[in-house]
């Protein structure tokens, strides 16, 4: 029981430190900018779901806001402690390392989901009825992608001393590079599965044509398979991160 109490306390502490940090202020700033863009978009004469997905959801939210929000909390949990040198206090407690990892993960995931899903809802509302309609359908893909990103970035934090830079490189460089390559290599990118799920969820709104200009390059897979991949990636990356954290020496 005392361990459970300590873990809960650590989760609460981690979440509190993440909330009251500069990255939250910056996250808010990014969200405000995106919201302004959405309001401006809603002023256009012919807003359609297809345009919302092509002009707002994919380029601004899925390609940028989503990975950045996940990155700022998922790497901050462990990488922040490593950077500040405070990880030693946690590792000196009698809490098993996998539980420390779990506490950090729980804090990061909770905040990330609140932020990504809340942000998505805000953008949808700002974009008017069309935006709200699309957003209501894409919450599940966003939730799955958030979980996968959090697992991935927190694993980076256990592996690399400069996990934030590595995560940024992955999210804004590698995913874009892989996503623009032909063939099945793009199945390594989280955003690929997120896009498939988004197109699948909004298919009834006629959004499919907002997808890639050359569908042959995109080579989509079934939505159920994409869901399964993201779920497996989330669980697998969490376990991998927990194992890595419990094995590595942090000095």
């Amino acid at each position: 029981m005392s361990s459970l109490y300590a873990i809960l306390h650590l989760t609460f502490l981690s979440a509190r430190r993440m909330i009251w940090s500069r990255q939250t202020v910056l996250n808010l700033l990014l969200l405000v900018l995106a919201t302004v863009a959405c309001i401006a978009w809603s002023l256009r004469e012919d807003p359609t779901p297809e345009r919302f997905v092509a002009q707002i959801l994919l380029p601004i939210y899925v390609a940028f806001l989503l990975p950045i929000s996940c990155l700022c909390y998922a790497t901050a949990g462990i990488a922040g402690d490593r950077e500040e040198g405070t990880l030693v206090y946690l590792l000196a407690t009698p809490l098993p390392r996998p539980l420390i990892y779990l506490a950090k993960y729980a804090a990061a995931l909770t905040l990330t989901l609140i932020w990504t899903l809340g942000g998505l809802r805000l953008l949808g509302q700002a974009a008017g009825p069309v935006g709200a309609q699309v957003v209501a359908l894409v919450s599940w893909p966003v939730l799955l992608a958030s979980c996968a990103y959090v697992g991935l970035f927190q694993w980076f934090a256990t592996l690399f001393s400069r996990a934030t830079i590595v995560a940024l490189g992955y999210a804004l460089f590698l995913e874009v590079l892989i996503g623009s390559m032909p063939g099945i290599v793009k199945r390594l990118a989280v955003s690929f599965y997120a896009q498939i799920l988004i197109f699948d969820a909004t298919g009834d709104l006629g959004v499919a044509s907002a997808g890639p200009h050359n569908p042959a390059m995109f080579l989509p897979i079934a939505a159920s398979a994409a869901t399964l991949v993201l779920l497996i990636a989330t669980v697998g990356l969490f376990l991998l991160g927990g194992w890595t954290f419990s094995q590595r020496e942090y000095v």
Partner: peptide
Amino acid sequence: FPRTVPLVMSWACVFVLLPAVGALL
């Protein structure tokens, strides 16, 4: 923003979000 996470976020904002928003507006 001397800490890595805020620095990276602000830097990415200038080079990724602002261009996307600018093009849209």
